[in-house]
Computed example of a mutant assay.
Amino acid sequence: MDTIEIQRIAEVEDESWWYRERRAAVARELRRIGTPGRAVDIGAAGGGNTRVLAAHGWDAVAVDGSPAAVRLARARGVEAYEGDAAYLPLPSGHFDFAMALDVLEHVEDDRAAAAEMARVLRPGGTALVSVACDLSLWSAHDVVLGRVRRYSRRALAEVIEGAGLLVDRMWSWNVLLRPFVRWRRHRAAGWGLERFHPAVNAGLRAVATLERHLPVKQLPGVTLFARAHRPV
């Protein structure tokens, strides 16, 4: 992801329905984990999600392969380091929680990246992963963002389990808005995170919020989430 795209994300993530609802999903998982500890946000971009970890009491650090992203995260008060997701500059068995949101689909060797996530976790530690899913959703948006794949449930499980982690739960996200997202992205020639009118943004977030309370998490969505742990 280049400098311009990182800056665009930083500009929209505090108001965008997509990023705000994804942060809410992270917050729910953190509450399920319970007592905060040490956490790492892998592929953190400007550190927006790392700040969510810190707000929930975690001692959190960010890692990103872009020097521009690291500078931006540090400017926002985040402890950040430059490093490749497949070769993290972090000690083994050090973290209670490792998070990689929309990262693996950008990494050529996603199995190496998953193995690194497992390596830095302590035994019993938790990993939270999200990935773009379903190749039928592939569009110019994926190309602009530098994705090299979209995942099926089976493919994501194989990558996580191949790293020695045990999958506790896997679920779809943005199920209700999948038709809208598919329509938008197949019409767009590139970047798709422009600012919506506030009323449209609020409406989209309302639909995404409604999804939390409906039994749709096993239906096809736009994104797959998985929570896993490193065996003791």
Rank of each mutant, 00 (worst) to 15 (best):
D2G: 15
Q7M: 07
R8S: 14
R20Y: 04
V26L: 15
R28Y: 03
E29D: 10
R31C: 04
R32K: 14
T35I: 03
T35P: 00
D41F: 07
I42T: 09
I42Q: 03
G43Q: 00
G43Y: 00
G43L: 01
G46H: 13
G47M: 04
G48P: 04
T50G: 01
G57A: 05
W58R: 07
D59G: 01
V63I: 10
P67T: 09
L72V: 12
R74S: 07
A80N: 04
G83K: 12
F95G: 10
D96A: 02
A100P: 01
V103P: 08
E108C: 00
D110C: 07
R111W: 05
R119M: 04
R119Q: 07
G124F: 08
T126C: 03
V129W: 02
D134Y: 12
D134H: 13
L137G: 07
W138G: 14
S139F: 07
V143Q: 14
V144Y: 15
L145R: 15
R150A: 12
Y151I: 08
Y151L: 11
Y151Q: 05
R153N: 09
A155L: 09
L156H: 09
G164H: 10
G164P: 07
L165A: 07
V167G: 03
D168I: 01
L177D: 11
L177P: 02
L177V: 13
R178I: 06
R178M: 06
F180G: 11
V181M: 12
R182P: 00
R185P: 00
R187N: 08
A189C: 00
G190P: 11
W191Q: 09
G192K: 00
L193G: 11
H197P: 06
A202Q: 06
A202H: 08
A202R: 15
G203Y: 12
L204K: 06
R205H: 08
V207P: 02
E211T: 11
E211Y: 02
H213D: 01
H213A: 13
L214W: 05
L219D: 01
L224M: 09
F225I: 13
A226P: 00
R230A: 12
